[in-house]
Design a protein around this nucleic acid. Structure first.
Lengths: 245, 245
DNA sequence: CCAAAAGTGTTGGCCCTACACCCATGG
DNA sequence: CCATGGGTGTAGGGCCAACACTTTTGG
């Protein structure tokens, strides 16, 4: 892959970054998987988007690079949530062969640092670098290489904690104008439970940073829903107030 | 350090594990630092207990090895909380020289995986492998190598979140029999705020897994306090019930 | 008897939950 | 006019915070 000895273009074959990019498609929580073509076979297998880091690349920068290569997105909040380093990660020789082939490097052991994001499905641009990407329901994952299944399970647990502590990430996911229903469905799918409609309305109206607009959703075969927007300034004002107590 | 090519005794010079071992001493939150002797000088400097991992060593196993080498403890709950991999970690040449000297390996870039634990101060046994260890108040840290100051700051934020989600870790820290005061002081020091005595008593009595014993603390120049114990079975029973809803 | 810490209840506010009906729109 | 989802209020319970006095012990 690399063509020079410039450390910015030289891979560091000991540490990788994998991104668990979550999104919602057909009312299901999905994860973005990229195709992995095994040399010499015509099977198509899937894996988490990820890559070895470069010699002088920061972990966060590597995660944003992978995000961008896989989706075309740039400013989605990404969270490092755990590192996986079991020596048995590379127990499957087929996985190692594939990686050695893809990186042109001799691979021994690899520690991977896992990142998490909530992404808009629609904005997805298919990357030509790592093969096409595909949203796959969490509930119907194919067999994945290394410990990617374990990483995804940890990510699903983690995003709920993250969303509890930093509700703004859900607004990066939604369009600028959204209805309370869209917001509620998003929560329901991420937490995998039903949420009471009235209580949810009350809650959102009490927050202060979810504000009504005068616009409504048109063309629905039922009463039209009001659009709301996320007030980022108010959100950060409230957050700072809490932190300084 | 290593003497053979056995992978169990060969260091993997790309990934290290650092442990932020927190404890309470003189009513202050402290972190365990180990001495680092710089070759050729008689200065004594300090660092977090940590080490490169071995070729075939799991990250968690490395963390427990470091815990044991630094304190003699074996079964303290350790939590991986973040990895640090800025290429600028190794910007200070003195730090790199020291590490190369200590490991007898050429060091380029290192990613470190940071772990956290709450340890009993009293049980501390001084390790002879990495030099003596010393409890140092968080509020008065010396200059530390690499990004150890940043790692400690992240650990202090993290332990509060961890304790909120997994209250049992505080009972691993306390003696088997403890008074409500001891428990409360522990919380006060970790969260760095005062806690109302009556409310705290009520709360602990309502939990179900903090149970009275018939024993009392003797020899105090004031009314003697009742000892309580942690009911581990009840704790896990309640925890499972919550998770299955 | 004094100092020092142990222990104990009540109240109000906030937030969460449960719960049922009318409204607006497109077809 | 009907099907579909949009939108609304109240009451009860649990948890938290604030707050002051009596009890026990050793010296």
């Amino acid at each position: 892959m690399q063509t020079t000895n410039n450390p910015k273009e030289t891979l560091y074959p000991h540490v990788s970054v994998d991104c668990v990019l979550l999104g919602i498609h057909d009312e299901q929580l999905c994860v973005l998987l990229t195709e992995r073509r095994d040399a010499g076979t015509d099977r198509t297998e899937y894996k988490l988007p990820g890559s070895l880091i470069y010699e002088t690349e920061d972990l966060d920068d590597a995660a944003y690079r992978i995000l961008n290569e896989a989706t075309g997105l740039k400013r989605v909040p990404l969270k490092q949530f755990r590192s996986f380093g079991s020596p048995r990660r590379t127990a499957n020789k087929e996985d190692v062969l594939w990686l050695e082939n893809a990186s042109k490097l001799k691979i021994g052991r690899i520690i991977t640092v896992a990142y998490l994001a909530l992404c808009k499905v629609k904005r997805l641009k298919i990357s030509d670098r790592y093969g096409p990407a595909q949203w796959t329901p969490i509930a119907r994952l194919p067999r994945l290489p290394f410990d990617h299944e374990e990483i995804i399970a940890a990510a699903v647990r983690e995003i709920r904690v993250w969303l509890d502590m930093e509700p703004s990430i859900v607004f990066d996911y939604l369009p600028q104008l959204f209805t309370v229903s869209q917001l509620r469905r998003t929560y329901e799918i991420i937490y995998n439970r039903n949420i009471d409609v009235r209580n949810f309305h009350k809650k959102m109206n009490s927050l202060g940073y979810v504000v009504q607009t005068d616009e409504t959703e048109q063309g629905m075969p039922h009463r039209s829903a009001r659009f709301y927007r996320f007030d980022k300034k108010e959100y950060h004002r409230m957050r700072n107030k809490l932190n300084t107590i």
